[in-house]
Write a protein that binds this DNA or RNA. Structure first.
Lengths: 264, 264
DNA sequence: CCGCATTTGTTCGTATGTATT
DNA sequence: TAATACATACGAACAAATGCG
């Protein structure tokens, strides 16, 4: 490094890092950089574009935060890959079946099962007194072994004694309900919102920390309309979308809009 | 508005900028820094924490990207302010009424009305031949004068000749439908997904560019089940959430979960 | 309207820490 | 252990936007 680069050649408008970002972005879009590919190292990019490391890092930071690439310390920076799963939210929603219908293999992994005093939100949704005991069950959901969700579900201890043990043993929620004399249940309400993932969620969902998640809060009721479960599930925003179908004749699931993302 | 010295130093694990970020974040959460307040300048924060400008800027970048603050060149950095609107997605969804029920004042502003060849997604949703003409109407929606949505809606030209002129004149969609002999219409399908806002969207929605949006794609049909409109609306993720209520007896809108955001 | 001070935005250089291979 | 590659951090300079006199 003998030559001294004449100090900042007043590039001004448009910025260096944006140029780098656009270029890499274009290469990804065009397929020149395929999903899974490793980008050139920072040093190489510096040389190719004749910019400083700062600009390279800024560009990569933007791309990473847009979910297009993922930087891994000590290894390199890689192009992210996506694929979208469509969930149908109906009066009867069984995510498991939903996935199977799309030719994907659902699986789940228990994270935690504990007995706690119901937080206010949960107590309100379930119609419990504050501080009443509930089981909080945390599970991670996968589709084809790719993590797609983190779910917190809450059941009143009084109504479902020791249900967390059954769940841990691998019994499905539907089966457990049946064991407690609940042959069927319905979705009462669903709330959907979005926010950026927390660091922890990003890690568990294997998505970039800057990417958003879809948060679905729902209350299930038995056939008499009594709330039996409240849950809050965080979905990988990159990989999931929801549909609500209102078929004219109350029929089963059908039809689906083909495309995702919007046309620009 | 001192943030407290806090002194960092050979901190190693956990990093300087994260310390600054956490500290400011805590001050915002605790109310020590209220929405709208101006943060200390970069120079001041540098001095207060005894760190370099790099660390300060990194911390602020994180906070900005989390939507907690907003930096404005030449002015300063300010604490952001939020408030959430809840929309009910039902078989009959009229956003206008939805807003009024929450005591907010809805308004709209036309952005564009043009006649174009239907993009593939639109043609598929409306059951049109490719290239068939549609009106694309772009509007921005406000609640209490705060921008909350950008909507692109598509109507077949053949069925609704010159409807864009009526829309521009301020007629409501419902009224226009009535004028074309459609007394009522239903939501056929709704798709919800999330992604980060584009720069343009962030600007129009007045939210931080790093924050996510909720994209709602929907198809409306007339009472005979024929598609009459396809639309895609981008909602400010910071300020909007959706609920789907499934009342046991098919009644109108009712009940609402109180809280938002999740309990940690 | 101009010029200046203030404040954030961009970019360079350099050094050191940490994770991976 | 050593080499590679990303992460963090300091300092310095100039650009661009804002606000004020």
């Amino acid at each position: 490094m003998t030559l001294k680069p004449e100090h900042a050649q007043l590039q001004s408008r448009s910025g260096q890092w944006q140029l780098v970002e656009e270029r890499i972005s274009r290469d990804i879009a065009s397929g020149a950089l395929a999903p899974g590919d490793r980008l050139p190292t920072e040093a190489e990019i510096m040389e190719q574009f004749g910019v400083g490391r700062h600009s390279v890092r800024r560009a990569i930071a933007e791309l990473a935060s847009a979910g297009k690439v993922r930087a891994e310390q000590g290894r390199g920076t890689f192009v992210e890959e996506h694929s979208v799963i469509t969930y149908n939210i109906a009066r009867r929603t069984r995510f498991r079946r939903n996935l199977l219908e799309q030719g994907r293999v659902p699986s789940g992994q228990p994270v935690t099962e504990v007995e706690i005093a119901a937080p206010p939100t949960v107590a309100a949704a379930l119609g419990l007194k504050d501080e009443e005991k509930v089981y909080m069950i945390v599970r991670r959901g996968f589709a084809d072994d790719v993590p797609i969700s983190i779910g917190h579900s809450y059941h009143p201890v009084e109504r479902f004694p020791n249900m967390h043990l059954r769940r841990r043993a691998g019994e499905s929620v539907t089966d457990i309900y049946a064991a407690f004399g609940i042959p069927d249940y319905l979705r009462r309400s669903t709330t959907i919102l979005t926010r950026r993932a927390t660091a922890e969620e990003a890690r568990l969902l294997a998505q970039s920390p800057q990417q958003p998640v879809l948060v679905v809060q729902k209350t299930d009721v038995d056939l008499k309309g009594r709330p039996i479960a409240y849950s809050e599930t965080v979905w990988a925003g990159e990989r999931v979308q929801f549909t609500i179908e209102n078929d004219p004749d109350e029929a089963g699931p059908k039809a689906k809009i083909g495309e995702r993302r919007h046309h620009e």
